[in-house]
């Protein structure tokens, strides 16, 4: 831990005193995500930090960092105003390269799906699992519908995410779900735990690559990226992706034409022009 901390110095803002020390949650190619607090100790937040890149010219580096943070924040605000489930922005310092935003409780959709699938027998092993029982799978199917609806809501506002994966979506437990679930449990605790893993509200996160676009092409590529990511992360649930698309198709007026475009994209891959 100490080694990693010396290797990656935190942004200056995190060196000032707080009720709890910040923790490094994850590290990407462009930035790092810390969990810390905003203003008061009981208000957790995520701090996204884009450290300066020593290999870039300082002026260019500062400008790139600033524009990228600013565009991410603008997209988040736009989504939030339109009611798309995304984290709220709390405070930012584009010049210093950081932004504090709402901390989303829960786990990534990826973890939820894997937890659900984890207890199932391997499909290759027994032939009787070839015919899945629909009622049994309902919680997972419903999650796919909710993901489709969330992506649809995002696209409706004129934003494409740019990096849709099941890791970039959180499942936030519903506030009232605790008691509601608790009272109906009892019969089968295992089933209930699994249902809980795929329950909750879908919240889209990480808009670092998001752009504002209304074109079918960009939206279809967004779905295509998700489809490919989904197939490689959850091969055993691949057949359920159709449910997601079906739900997406009913979220806004132009969604059906995006799905038609998706067919084209599948045929040729993500890049329309083979340049770059």
């Amino acid at each position: 831990m100490a080694a990693t901390e010396t290797q990656f110095p935190p942004p200056k803002v995190l060196t000032y005193p707080a009720s709890a020390p910040p923790s490094l949650v994850t590290q990407g190619a462009e930035g790092r995500l810390y969990k810390t607090t905003h203003l008061v100790p009981d208000r957790p937040c995520a701090l996204k930090y884009r450290p300066p890149k020593p290999y870039r010219h300082p002026i260019l580096d500062a400008r790139l960092t600033k524009t990228r943070l600013a565009s991410e924040a603008k997209v988040l605000e736009r989504c939030w105003r339109e009611g798309v489930p995304v984290p709220a922005v709390y405070v930012m310092d584009p010049a210093a390269g950081w932004m504090m935003m709402e901390w989303i409780d829960g786990h990534p959709v990826r973890v939820g799906i894997n937890e659900w699938l984890g207890e199932r027998p391997e499909e290759e092993g027994e032939t009787e699992t070839e015919t899945p029982k629909p009622a049994d799978e309902e919680p997972l199917v419903d999650l796919m519908r909710r993901v489709g609806a969330a992506v649809g809501a995002l696209h409706r506002t004129g934003v494409v995410h740019g990096d849709l994966t099941t890791s970039n979506m959180m499942l936030r437990p519903r506030e009232d779900a605790g008691q509601a679930n608790g009272s109906t449990t009892g019969v089968d605790g295992v089933v209930d735990d699994k249902a809980k893993a795929v329950g909750g509200d879908v919240v889209l996160i990480d808009f670092g690559l998001a752009t504002q676009s209304m074109s079918d092409e960009d939206r279809a590529v967004d779905l295509y990226v998700l489809e490919r990511a989904f197939a490689s992360t959850h091969p055993r649930a691949e057949r359920l992706f159709a449910t997601l698309l079906e739900s997406y198709g009913s979220t806004f007026k132009k969604a059906p034409s995006v799905l038609v475009k998706l067919e084209d994209v599948r045929m040729r891959g993500r890049k329309r022009s083979m340049l770059g």
């Binding site: 924040a73 603008k74 605000e77 939030w80 709220a88 922005v89 709390y90 584009p94």
Partner: peptide, 13 residues
Amino acid sequence: ERLAIMGMALRGL
């Protein structure tokens, strides 16, 4: 309140 705070965070962007 959230939207107001967000508007302030994005001041001038």
